[in-house]
Design a protein around this nucleic acid. Structure first.
Length: 473
DNA sequence: TTTTGAGTTGTTCGA
DNA sequence: GTCGAACAACTCAAA
């Protein structure tokens, strides 16, 4: 039986895996391989939390392949050399993989594809990560979309039919035992010290964990998704983001489940729209690759950002700003590798508006600490919050963290869970303890920045960006 | 080409 | 307490 390499990247599943399926359909015995080459994604090589997840997800994929009679080979990069070497060792005639959209990865993959083709190999890539690949969606004028609503109006009608997910193969051909594999430990992905120990109370990386999460979401949270998705004190979010990032479940599979769910149309559409935002983020990243580091809106080149003060930056990172909802979010992030999306917006607004630090500094912290760190989603989210994005919040929309906490954590349960110092503070005082002089000694007595003053300062800084009147002649 | 309508997630102020 | 307006202008996208 001829063999083909199936190059796994962030598609760490067997269900609805187009590259694997294509190899099988073409009559090849697949040789699954993962190549460890983080340098090739610099300066956005995966962060520490992401790597901790990846280690577990790779182990799960290896187990799942073994259970079907196959084997996952682990190799060190550089990628091109690794794939060429494995092809030579195995006699593989073809290489199949699913596409990614990060700028550095796109460039790397193009080079790899050309190199393989030059050697006479069949190299082919597939769509395994998106419902609508970036080049398939344009405005009527043929340009990339910059605004979500028109983008989604183009994509949403396609989804009612025509997007199919294929089932995982029940059995796979064996992989030649002579083909060598690195050990997972050799990759050095798992943390040396077990700071991630508590992550795994809430998360199960790997395909079966992803499917269980999807099942639980559809069964328990979908019906109330419209309201509860904004409530960090409830289990209202899907929590699918890290599973989607690593491709442990495909968006087509999520779509199929949402379309089949017996639920109110509004809840379904809301959940679909969140998948739509993931699609839109990838659309923007693909068409505007510089948006990971540069303000989308060039007008912000003249904005009076504050120079990040190391002490203040550390207080934000550690959840010691003195603003409870902000600190709760950042502590949740540190403890669990994840933060509720509503709270992400609150901490980002505080960072970009109240502290007036450039969004890239916050994005970098998220990148290192989130298990769902995703270049497309992270860049879009931070630019949206900062107001620098193409389709961003208007600049005068500055979140008041006290108001946000009262509205979305009305009983203070979320704050108490993540800030034990405040566990005994009454609800009416817990969102702004400095106004009631109730904060205990080891919690900051007042916010690191005055909320009202810093809000006004941000508005003034934005006002200064306005196009100046032409000078009098 | 020109015009028109619209744009994830908010806050504050004053009637 | 509730409600509507103001907060600015700009740009995108479609008609």
């Amino acid at each position: 039986m001829p063999t083909a390499l199936v190059w796994f990247r962030r598609d760490l599943r067997l269900d609805d895996h187009p590259a694997l399926q294509a190899a099988l359909d073409a009559g090849y015995a697949p040789i699954p391989v993962y190549v460890h080459a983080p340098d090739e994604e610099a300066p956005w090589a995966p962060g520490a939390a992401s790597n901790a997840w990846l280690a577990r997800s790779l182990r799960a994929l290896g187990d799942d392949l073994a259970a079907r009679g196959s084997r996952l080979l682990l190799r060190f990069g550089p990628t091109q050399a690794a794939l060429e070497a494995l092809a030579a060792e195995s006699g593989a005639e073809a290489v199949f993989w699913n596409r990614l959209y990060d700028p550095k990865v796109v460039a790397r993959d193009r080079t790899v594809k050309q190199a393989l083709a030059t050697r006479g190999m069949h190299a082919q890539s597939f769509n395994g990560a998106l419902l609508a690949e970036p080049w398939t969606v344009t405005t009527n004028a043929g340009d990339p979309c910059r605004v979500f609503t028109p983008f989604w109006k183009k994509v949403r009608p396609r989804l009612d039919d025509g997007v199919r997910a294929t089932a995982a193969p029940a059995r796979l051909p064996p992989v030649d035992a002579n083909l060598a594999s690195e050990t997972l430990d050799a990759f050095g992905l798992a943390p040396a010290r077990d700071w991630d120990a508590r992550f795994w109370d809430t998360w199960t990386p790997g395909e079966s964990g992803a499917q269980a999460r999807l099942d639980a979401f559809v069964a328990d949270a979908l019906a109330d998704y419209e309201s509860d998705r904004d409530r960090p004190d409830r289990e209202g979010a899907s929590r699918l983001s890290p599973h989607l990032h690593f491709g442990e479940v495909s968006p087509r599979r999520v779509l199929a489940r949402l379309l089949a769910a017996d639920t109110a149309p509004a809840a379904r559409e809301r959940a679909l729209a969140e998948i739509g935002w993931r699609e839109f983020a990838h659309h923007l990243l693909y068409h505007f690759p510089q948006s990971t580091d540069a303000d989308f809106n060039p007008r912000f080149a003249g904005f009076a950002w504050a120079e990040p003060d190391a002490r203040v930056l550390r207080a934000w990172q550690q959840g010691r700003t003195g603003v409870p909802i902000v600190d709760a979010g950042l502590r949740q992030l540190w403890a669990s590798g994840w933060m509720h999306n509503r709270v992400r917006m609150v901490v980002a607004s505080f960072f970009c508006k109240n502290l007036r630090f450039h969004w890239t500094h916050g994005a970098r912290w998220f990148w290192d600490t989130l298990v769902d760190a995703d270049l497309a989603n992270n860049s879009l989210g931070w630019q949206w919050s900062a107001g620098t994005g193409a389709d961003a919040a208007p600049y005068f929309r500055i979140f008041n963290p006290v108001t946000q906490a009262r509205r979305f954590d009305p009983d203070g349960a979320y704050v108490r869970r993540w800030i034990p110092e405040l566990a005994d503070v009454p609800t009416k005082a817990i969102f702004a303890p400095w106004e009631h002089a109730v904060a205990p000694g080891d919690y900051p007595a007042r916010p690191i920045v005055d909320l009202a003053e810093s809000r006004d300062a941000a508005l003034k800084a934005f006002a200064a960006l306005r196009t100046p009147e032409p000078a009098e002649a």
